[in-house]
Nucleic acid binder design. Sequence first.
DNA 1: GGCGTACCGTACCGTACGGTACGCCCTTTA
DNA 2: TAAAGGGCGTACCGTACGGTACGGTACGCC
Lengths: 217, 217
Amino acid sequence: MQPSPTAEQDAPSARQQAVLDAVLGLMVEDRDQLTMDAVARRASCSKETLYKWFGDRDGLLTATVRWQASRVHAGYDTAQVLDGATLRERLQDFAVTWLEVITGPTSVALNRIAIAHAGSHKSNLGGIVLANGRFAIGERVKPVLEAGRAVGLLAFADSEAAFRTFFGLVGRDIQIRLLLGEALDLCGDEIRRDADRAVDQFLALYGQVKPEPNHQT
Amino acid sequence: MQPSPTAEQDAPSARQQAVLDAVLGLMVEDRDQLTMDAVARRASCSKETLYKWFGDRDGLLTATVRWQASRVHAGYDTAQVLDGATLRERLQDFAVTWLEVITGPTSVALNRIAIAHAGSHKSNLGGIVLANGRFAIGERVKPVLEAGRAVGLLAFADSEAAFRTFFGLVGRDIQIRLLLGEALDLCGDEIRRDADRAVDQFLALYGQVKPEPNHQT
DNA sequence: GGCGTACCGTACCGTACGGTACGCCCTTTA
DNA sequence: TAAAGGGCGTACCGTACGGTACGGTACGCC
């Protein structure tokens, strides 16, 4: 395997994407059925091709995680004028998106794989998942928070800390419960209510102009 | 969480506890070296005994999780008169304890195992971990919150929801980052500061008498 | 002393899975 | 039409690991 000692960063070909989707499918369906044979069968390709393209099992997993990550990145849509309503809306948007992601079966499966892998030294899927999940959304939210502070809508010293509070208010115990196998499926409505509550609470903590605290379930 | 749904709840004998501790040790050191052979070697017992005592690998894992859970339960210490200072102190106590638990290597390893197991149908370690972690602390915190409400220090409609907010404010992104393999070791001091901040924020959201908001990093 | 029980150590078995080799088909190119 | 190459299917190999069997030892009991 000459051509790429580190890893195939290049966007996978259509056929390769199909393979990676097959991997995702298997992950979601049943994690411990995720064998090279099963992938080859599902993707209708030979194992030899798998090894040629991805090096080894780990490479395949890594490529899959990258592939999934590559299509999560929603477009930015950077700042217009920021008033209280837009700020709130932006934050709600982030919260809803994030909740939808972490409650999705693909995310759950992927995180399980990455966590199972973590600590087992080699090729950290965990790092990739973190970079494209938790940290990616952090980098997208923080500018919004800072813009809010710039126009006097928010007050905080450390945007990272502020974001982490926001993250905690949004996610709470949901992700860990899902990862540990609790059923717990939220419908879109519940997600929206959760996001509302989280944003309300966040603004109550960091907002300069306090809206009357309506929700308080 | 009933103490005995099905199997062998009886407290393990001293020898058996030693075996389970060996399992915990291996888990923490290197998860994928956690083989029946390795356990037998580490615990200086025969595999046959392992199977006799615990049935199969799953039984051993389950017993280990239960064993670890059994020594986490700190004593209650139910309510004295509850004033603002004691309430705050109790909450800080919970927050510190919880952070110490989830940042501990044993917890991380155990959660990784349970998560890896989850979704793989059979014998849910995830359920046990949840019951003795997230839910156990919930059942211990909620009475405190309710006591706080009873004396007018807190205001909320749903103690479960209030607790979940507390949980989110305390844990934020810490557990998922650790599980995914980030280094991130908090010293006792940071944990205490984190707990302080979380309690401040929680009281700011749910407290009736607002203490001046000092921390706001 | 003889016997049963509990347990250690180790050898052994079956299987599942990661990884490799090879034959065949199909498409492309000359 | 022929040669070449990419890729599919399948058979195969080595090994690691869950689980079992068996010999050997210590101990308690009749």
